[in-house]
Amino acid sequence: MGTRRCAGVMWAVLLGLVVTVLAPLAWAQAPPPGPSGTGGRVPAVATTWPVGVRPRILRGWSPPASPYGPGHRGVDLAAPAGAPVRSVAAGRVSFAGRVAGRGVVSVELRGTGTPPLRTTYEPVRASVRAGDEVAAGAVIGAVEPAGGHCTLPCVHWGLRRAGTYLDPLLLLPPQLRNGGPSRLLPVLGVPLPP
């Protein structure tokens, strides 16, 4: 095989790898436009994860096919009991109390359209009250030792706009969601072009 043909094959393989790595990020969008006029888009307004630096995701978002159908309307993040839970963005606490025996905190996020996006965190022992204004990264409570639906201690993090559940991971900018900017690594055994 000639040098030019080998270089062409190498570039085709490299392009394929780039598409494979970056395409899922480009396609990770919110649902199609909704009735609110906001287009159903989720702005990347989060400045922090709710718990930890980059917690392990125990279970991802799986939207229901119908409003009352089965699904997972949020993400479960591994977190030890007593760990601080933070508001991912600035907003106003719309609820802090118990639902079905679990502590729940909901925060309406500032500057996210009408109706505003609302994040929920459970099971959380609230340190805030309904009506409190919170800054991005402010502690809103602590992980309760029991009461969640995970097999390990966790926080269920949800996101809604009115009655529509959305993927809360979309609130995170790519550098938080993916641990930093994408980097291309060399393909083993393939020489770099001159």
Rank of each mutant, 00 (worst) to 15 (best):
V18F: 08
V18A: 15
V19Y: 04
T20N: 01
T20G: 08
T20V: 10
T20Q: 07
T20R: 11
V21Y: 03
A23L: 15
A23F: 12
A23N: 02
P24A: 07
P24G: 09
L25P: 00
L25Q: 15
A26E: 05
A26S: 04
A26M: 06
W27R: 14
A28G: 04
A28V: 00
Q29E: 14
A30E: 12
A30D: 13
P31Q: 09
P31N: 09
P32Y: 06
P33E: 10
P33Q: 06
P33D: 12
G34D: 15
P35L: 11
P35I: 04
P35M: 02
P35W: 13
P35D: 13
S36E: 14
G37Q: 10
G37W: 08
T38W: 10
R41T: 14
R41Q: 12
V42I: 14
A44R: 13
A44E: 15
V45R: 05
V45M: 05
A46H: 06
T47H: 02
T47I: 05
T47K: 12
T47V: 15
W49C: 01
W49R: 01
W49L: 01
P50L: 02
P50W: 05
V51R: 04
V51P: 04
G52E: 10
G52P: 02
V53G: 09
V53I: 07
R54M: 09
R54C: 01
R54D: 03
P55F: 07
P55C: 05
R56E: 12
R56M: 01
R56W: 00
I57S: 01
I57C: 00
L58P: 00
